[in-house]
């Protein structure tokens, strides 16, 4: 079980392909919030949330149905955040959660800054929301689903994709199964 804020000791042993569970407070941000964070960083202004050691989850949750704390909340495509991610890693963000490929620049910065990129299962949004026990908007409520939310999660499941050592679970996973005739024809 991993709990933010993370230290190097928490993250160094993790390897691409590992299944992890996260408990504690994580922050949401997707396209619009990233754009605003990047503008603040560029101007040298303070951020509205202290992100050093913390986790950012790329998600725009659905509205909560009555009796639920949040609506379905699965990962969105991480690559859209690549353009804004390196400065956030330099500020000390330690865990990124989303789905899909990262750019070479982001992967290099993960190694340099000793941070992790993990994927949650896209399309399993209803189940993932069950691991979220509270949700509140921290800043920029006018962005609606794109506002930065503070989520309290319990046993939130993810798979390490890019570890601190340059490991890449997408590349390894694909190479393991590519063009395996016996698998395709001989099940």
């Amino acid at each position: 079980m991993l709990t933010p804020p993370f230290t190097e000791t928490d993250l160094l042993p993790l390897r691409a392909g590992d299944s992890i569970r996260i408990s504690g407070v994580i922050y949401t941000a997707r396209d619009a919030a990233h754009k605003r964070l990047a503008e603040l960083i560029e101007r040298g202004d303070p951020l509205p949330v202290a992100l050093a050691g913390q986790a950012i989850y790329y998600v725009g949750p659905a509205p909560a149905k009555e009796g639920h704390v949040i609506g379905p909340a699965g990962p969105t495509t991480s690559g859209r955040m690549d353009a804004y991610t390196v400065p956030l890693l330099r500020l000390g963000v330690k865990l990124l959660i989303g789905k899909g490929y990262r750019s070479p620049e982001v992967k290099a910065a993960l190694v340099e800054q000793r941070a992790i990129y993990a994927a949650a299962v896209g399309g399993a949004a209803a189940l993932l929301a069950r691991h979220i026990h509270s949700s509140r908007v921290v800043v920029w409520p006018e962005l609606g689903t794109e506002a930065i939310h503070e989520l309290t999660v319990e046993g939130f499941p993810a798979i390490v994709i890019n570890d601190c050592h340059g490991g890449d679970a997408y590349a390894v996973g694909r190479a393991a199964w590519e063009k395996r005739e016996e698998i395709v024809n001989g099940e």
């Binding site: 725009g60 149905k65 379905p72 399309g123 399993a124 949004a125 209803a126 689903t145």
Partner: peptide, 20 residues
Amino acid sequence: LLLENSAYAQAEQIPTCQDT
């Protein structure tokens, strides 16, 4: 997991994916 998610979403009548 995707099959379980679909069954849960249908039972609760909540979206299968947040991106509708």
